[in-house]
Write a protein that binds this DNA or RNA. Structure first.
Lengths: 182, 182
DNA sequence: CTGTGCATGTAAATCGTTACATGATTGC
DNA sequence: GCAATCATGTAACGATTTACATGCACAG
């Protein structure tokens, strides 16, 4: 599922501009995806070229014309076909956890700091999600929101219960490796 | 953390060839990252150019020469500096969950199928991880392995308890939208 | 005789991020 | 006066995926 398809998907909810789609990514999909103008505008152009969306330009004073996109029947059919395919695998990327795979190279304090940072980041996200959850416009978004909370809560519990595994294999003090290169 | 840095990181565990590094990605880091030859071999070449790794070529009969890479002191220093930076944010991408954001377009059975598929996939992963966990060579890997299990267990629980939210907003029968384009 | 493992790579395509470029309006 | 919001985009870069290309050994 790339930015192009997701833009098409957002247009199934109603007409929209590139600018608004950017906001939709932030407000509705930021748990799973984020996109910048640099990918959204070219995507919309491509969708238009392919006849999957239409646009009407609305003149505005002192602003660039607003380009309001709407999905065409072909676009809708295309998206529905796409979304009924068997979905691919999940991907989870964490620079923090990846870093911790190399705990043997890190001073103990740094390992603890990274673990604390992960927990703090997750806690903040949980906080934001909990606040938003009830206000989400669709059941799907509520579901995803709750998912984000529960998974992070489990992650925090796990980290608190098992962090000693990492902290005990880290470098005992902040002595750098540069002297121990062998 | 890109493939180049991860290759460098693997070499802190000991000398290795590109082929072996590919296996290391699969066996040790597949929860967080996966890389193919198409990114590993060019990465190793770049690292060599930059003087961060050395290589010795071992002739073999009827096979391409084996290129055994080892990390240089500069490479080690570079990696340690890199790994002590404050890590960036996590990213979680799920095509299945993204699909479910569009439940309003999907026949109910398909929503259920996708949910069942997510659960089955997670369960299989949990099974594989649980078996491997004890055999993992480093505490870091055990930690990560356990993390993968716990988080997926929480996800499955959440899905089972809340799937009705999605199933009730899906299309009641398998009637396609093509007639209801408005 | 077929598939798996060993062992290397290149080239093209796809995809996304980041930085740049423009410019008025509104609220603090 | 400064930041934020509205509103559009392009260009360069970076990263990864995928398909291609080669070829022996060994097990079933």
């Amino acid at each position: 599922m790339n930015v192009r398809m997701l833009c098409l998907g957002f247009l199934t909810f109603g007409d929209s501009t590139g600018y608004e789609i950017k906001k939709a990514f932030q407000e509705r999909l930021s748990l799973l995806y984020n996109a910048g103008y640099g990918s959204i505008y070219p995507s919309l152009n491509k969708l238009h070229e392919d006849g999957l969306v239409m646009l009407r330009e609305e003149a505005q004073n002192n602003r660039p014309d607003k380009k309001v996109y709407s999905i065409t029947p072909e676009g809708r059919a295309c998206f529905e076909t796409y979304v009924q395919r068997t979905p691919g695998e999940d991907h989870f990327r964490s620079e923090a956890l990846t870093t911790l795979m190399f705990s043997h190279l890190l001073p103990k304090e740094h390992v603890s700091d990274v673990l604390d940072l992960i927990i703090a980041t997750y806690q903040e996200k949980i906080h934001l999600l909990s606040e938003d959850c009830d206000m989400k416009p669709t059941p799907s978004e509520k579901f995803l929101c709750g998912f984000g909370v529960k998974v992070r809560e489990a992650a925090i519990d796990y980290i608190n219960q098992n962090r000693h595994m990492l902290e005990s294999c880290a470098q005992e003090n902040s002595k750098k490796q540069t002297d121990g290169v062998e």
